[in-house]
């Protein structure tokens, strides 16, 4: 199982410091819920899409859209049917289908949701996991919490591998010579042994993990130093300032008062 969401590339987003970039993401995600002009929301979506395209390729840039395509369709289908107030502008036969208000509503919802999706995706694509972790630390996450995060990432592929092997092992053990004999019900019943074996396997690694953490000095009263550091080219202050400016410009240009 690949745990990395980072996609190597060049450009502004890779230069932008992980801490300041995180601030931008949070600010933008909050701003889209303020009364913004619809054009503004679509500009955000457009810019984010272009950034994604530039950072990766067209196919990858479409990926977030594809993951939420279905919900977008549901929204398009549901919202007109549930917003019945106002002036109808579209009829299907005799049936009044959509009102102007509903159109505005669905447009805003879609643009907002797309915007959030792209902004979040861009962050995890252009920031290495280690840097995200350091950014959280900078915002006050404790060392131990950050360590849990790192260790979780270390164990995901390990447990995923073991889990696949466990499934295989059970498949071989349960195989019967006559084809088609294992029905759906049987397969459902086989979930319990597989899950149990996987959990026992995972739980057994816990004492050894705790043991190794202590063997490598966790618990010692010596003050820990840090191998990894975030380096913001031009100073972190510049980056944070830039981050706030991006949000401010977006806000001032597109807010409706």
């Amino acid at each position: 199982m690949t745990t990395s969401t980072y996609i190597a590339g060049r450009g502004f987003l890779y230069w932008f410091d992980a801490r300041a970039k995180l601030l931008t993401v949070v600010l933008l995600c909050v701003l889209v819920f303020l009364p913004m002009r619809q054009l503004g929301l679509w500009v955000l979506v457009g810019v984010a899409f272009l950034c994604a395209w530039r950072a990766t390729d067209f196919k990858q840039a479409l990926q977030p859209l594809r993951t939420i395509l279905f919900v977008l369709i549901i929204m398009v289908l549901f919202t007109p049917l549930t917003y019945r107030d106002g002036e109808f502008i579209l009829f299907i036969g005799q049936f009044p289908f959509i009102t102007r208000e509903a159109l505005v509503q669905v447009n805003t919802l879609i643009a907002r949701f797309l915007g959030i999706t792209y902004v979040c995706s861009l962050y995890v694509w252009t920031t290495p996991m280690a840097d995200i972790n350091l950014a959280f630390r900078w915002y006050g996450l404790s060392y131990q919490a950050a360590l849990v995060l790192t260790l979780a990432f270390r164990f995901i592929p390990f447990i995923a591998d073991a889990f696949r092997m466990i499934q295989d092992s059970h498949a071989l053990r349960n195989a019967v010579r006559i084809e088609g004999e294992t029905g759906k019900r049987q397969r459902l019943l086989d979930v319990v042994p597989t899950v149990t074996a996987a959990l026992v396997f995972a739980l057994k690694s816990i004492p050894y993990l705790a043991m190794t953490l202590e063997h490598r000095g966790l618990g010692s009263s010596v003050k820990r130093t840090s191998y990894r550091k975030l380096h913001a080219k031009g100073g972190i202050f510049t980056h944070v300032l830039l981050s706030v400016m991006i949000a401010a410009v977006f806000f001032l240009v597109f807010i409706t008062i």
Binding site: A130, T150, R154, R216, G217, V222, K223
Partner: peptide, 26 residues
């Protein structure tokens, strides 16, 4: 049983961080 980190570099660094090595020395 003894692997803790997500890169080889961090793996070597972890106990040295516990020993309090300065960043450059690490």
């Amino acid at each position: 049983e003894q692997l803790l980190m997500t890169t080889c570099g961090d793996e070597v660094a972890f106990p040295l961080e516990s020993l309090g090595f300065a960043h450059e020395k690490l």
